[in-house]
Computed example of a mutant assay.
Amino acid sequence: MTEYSDHLNLWLSGLEGGDKFKILNKILADDCVFYSPVMHTPQKGKQLTFLYLASAFTVLLKEGKFQYRRILEQGNDAVLEFETEIDGILINGVDMMTFNDDGQITEFKVMLRPMKALEKVKALMMAELEAMKSA
């Protein structure tokens, strides 16, 4: 079994049934920047990054098919390739993270493919973000 850094293990444990939102809040640095596959500008700050990632958790993990296929870690950087399926659409993506020396995420970048999957995830996440803002 591959061993990862403590901070990457914390991220992975949040996806495997831990308190996702508590772990997400703990692992994001205050100055975190989120790069979305659909937004043309970076989303800056812990609050915005939290909203986008919490929404992504709700959308991508909903059907229980999300899994990381490949994880590469070097120093404070990690690249995690994932797959999931929503409404019969196979989604392939990459999460790229940079951690600070305290083990918090300072940069989170997401890439998705194919276009049909990107469009589906965009629609679902926009609806989820609206629901979160209304709550």
Rank of each mutant, 00 (worst) to 15 (best):
M1E: 05
T2I: 06
E3F: 08
H7E: 09
L8I: 06
E16F: 05
G18M: 10
G18I: 12
K20M: 12
F21I: 02
I23C: 02
I23G: 00
L28W: 13
A29T: 00
F34K: 02
F34A: 03
Y35I: 09
P37N: 10
V38M: 15
M39S: 14
T41F: 14
Q43I: 14
G45Q: 06
K46P: 00
T49W: 09
T49I: 00
F50P: 02
F50W: 12
L51R: 12
T58F: 10
G64N: 07
G64F: 10
F66H: 11
F66C: 07
Q67P: 03
Q74S: 02
G75D: 10
N76E: 10
D77H: 09
L80A: 03
F82K: 08
E83M: 06
T84R: 04
E85K: 11
D87E: 15
G88V: 03
I91H: 11
N92H: 10
N92K: 14
V94G: 03
M96Q: 08
M97N: 03
N100Y: 15
D102W: 00
G103L: 03
Q104T: 01
T106R: 04
F108M: 05
K109M: 13
K109G: 01
M111Y: 13
L112C: 10
A123K: 09
A123L: 09
M132D: 02
K133N: 13
S134F: 12
S134L: 11
